[in-house]
Amino acid sequence: MIFRRRGKDDPTAAIQGFWAWWATARPRAEKLIAGTPDDALVAEIGDRVSAIHPGLQWEFTAGTDTAHRLVVTSAGDAGLRSLAERWRRAAPDADGTFGYASTRQGDPGALDGAVLDLAGHRLDLGELRFAGVVDTEANAVHVTVWHPVFPGLPEEARLQVAFLSLDWALGEDRVEIWIGAISTATEPGPDLTAAALAGVVAGVIPADGEALWSTLAGTRKGRPLVALVQTPLKAARWPAYDLHIRIDVPYRSRDENGFPAEDAFPALYALEDRIDARVDGAVVVAHETSDGVRTTHLYAERPAAAAVLEPLLLDWPDGRIRMKVTPDPGWTAVSHLAR
C-alpha cells in the first residue's frame, strides 16, 4: 500500500482552539445577535475561522431547531468541504440557543420579502422564478432562473443572483449534490416558485437512501473501459470522506477487449464483497474495468479504513493487488467519472 501523509498545515489545533475560544466568547455572540454592537467579536471570529483556513466563510443565521445557528462553510469550494465538516463535528451539542452547521441551510420561504442590492439594481427575491428539468440519467435537476430585472443585468451578475438564491432556498448541500446545470433567462418562461422548485428537487432524492448506480463506457490509454459509478458522484454526499483509496486488481482471464472473461468474475466479485463487508468509515463510489485491471475507488475519513483492507488483498492468484491512499478533499481522483 502507498500512503501519502497529510500536509504539515494540520488544522486540528486551529479547530480545537476555535471551540475552546467559543466557550468563553459565546455570551458576547448572544449579545451581538440581540443588537449590541461588537466589532471586536466579529473580527475575532473571522480570525479564528481564517486560522483553520482562509478560504472558509462564516455567518450567524436563524436556526430551525435552535434560535440561532453559527455556520462555517466552504462556500462551494469542494476542496474545503471536509474541513468545514470537521469543524462542525468538533462543535458542542446544540441547545435551545445555538446550533452549528458546515453548510448554509435552505429555506424556500427565505426569498419572500428579501431584497438584494446588486450592480445598481434592487431585486425583490420573491419575484424570482425557476424552471427545473429532471435528468434521470444524472439523477439531477437542471435549473433556469429568471427575474424581471435580469434583462438589465450582465450575465455574471445574473448567475451570481442564481447561485445565491438557490443556496438560500435549497441549501448548499442540495445545490451541490442534486442540481446540475444552472443558467439564467432574460425572457419570462420559468414559472416555479422557490417552494415548487424545492419539491422538484426533493423528488429526485431517494427516500430510502438507497445507492443509485450508473454505467459509463469509454477508453483509457486507447483500450475500452466500463465503469460503474454511484450517482450523483459528489463529495458533498460524504463531506468528511477526504481520503481516496484506489485498489487495482489484475485479472489474467480476459476477452479480446481486455474485459474479464466469464470465469474471472466469481473471484473478482467475491473479493469486492469482502471489501464491502470490511469497510468501516469508508464508501465504495466507483469501479472501473479495462485492459486486465479492475479498479475500485473508495473514500474514507481516516487511514485506518484502508489498513483493515490490507489483509484481504494478499495472495491474489492473478498477480499483485496495489492499494494507494491519497488525501483528496476535492475528489479529483474520480472527477473523470462524474457527470
Results as ranks from 00 to 15, higher is better:
residue 1 M to H: 12
residue 2 I to H: 13
residue 10 D to G: 06
residue 11 P to S: 08
residue 12 T to C: 08
residue 13 A to M: 02
residue 13 A to D: 15
residue 14 A to P: 04
residue 15 I to K: 01
residue 17 G to L: 06
residue 17 G to S: 05
residue 20 A to P: 05
residue 23 A to P: 03
residue 24 T to Y: 11
residue 31 K to Y: 10
residue 36 T to M: 14
residue 36 T to E: 14
residue 45 I to N: 07
residue 46 G to Y: 02
residue 47 D to W: 06
residue 49 V to H: 01
residue 53 H to C: 09
residue 59 E to I: 11
residue 61 T to M: 11
residue 66 T to S: 15
residue 68 H to Y: 14
residue 70 L to C: 06
residue 75 A to L: 10
residue 79 G to M: 01
residue 79 G to S: 09
residue 83 L to Y: 04
residue 85 E to L: 14
residue 89 R to M: 15
residue 92 P to M: 10
residue 93 D to R: 13
residue 97 T to F: 04
residue 99 G to P: 00
residue 102 S to L: 12
residue 105 Q to P: 06
residue 106 G to L: 01
residue 106 G to V: 06
residue 119 A to N: 11
residue 131 A to C: 03
residue 143 V to D: 03
residue 146 W to A: 06
residue 146 W to D: 08
residue 153 L to N: 04
residue 159 L to V: 05
residue 162 A to T: 01
residue 165 S to C: 11
residue 169 A to I: 02
residue 171 G to Q: 06
residue 175 V to N: 03
residue 177 I to M: 01
residue 178 W to R: 03
residue 178 W to A: 07
residue 180 G to K: 01
residue 182 I to V: 15
residue 194 A to H: 09
residue 203 G to Q: 10
residue 206 P to D: 02
residue 207 A to T: 13
residue 212 L to Y: 08
residue 212 L to P: 11
residue 215 T to W: 14
residue 215 T to I: 14
residue 224 P to C: 00
residue 225 L to H: 08
residue 230 Q to D: 14
residue 237 R to N: 12
residue 239 P to R: 02
residue 242 D to Q: 11
residue 244 H to V: 04
residue 247 I to W: 07
residue 248 D to T: 09
residue 251 Y to V: 01
residue 252 R to A: 15
residue 253 S to Q: 12
residue 254 R to G: 06
residue 255 D to L: 03
residue 257 N to K: 13
residue 259 F to M: 12
residue 262 E to F: 13
residue 263 D to L: 13
residue 263 D to F: 01
residue 265 F to A: 05
residue 265 F to M: 10
residue 270 A to D: 14
residue 272 E to K: 03
residue 274 R to T: 08
residue 277 A to R: 09
residue 282 A to T: 00
residue 283 V to Y: 01
residue 285 V to F: 03
residue 295 T to C: 05
residue 296 T to N: 08
residue 304 A to S: 14
residue 307 A to I: 11
residue 310 E to Q: 12
residue 311 P to N: 08
residue 318 D to W: 00
residue 319 G to V: 08
residue 322 R to G: 12
residue 338 A to I: 08
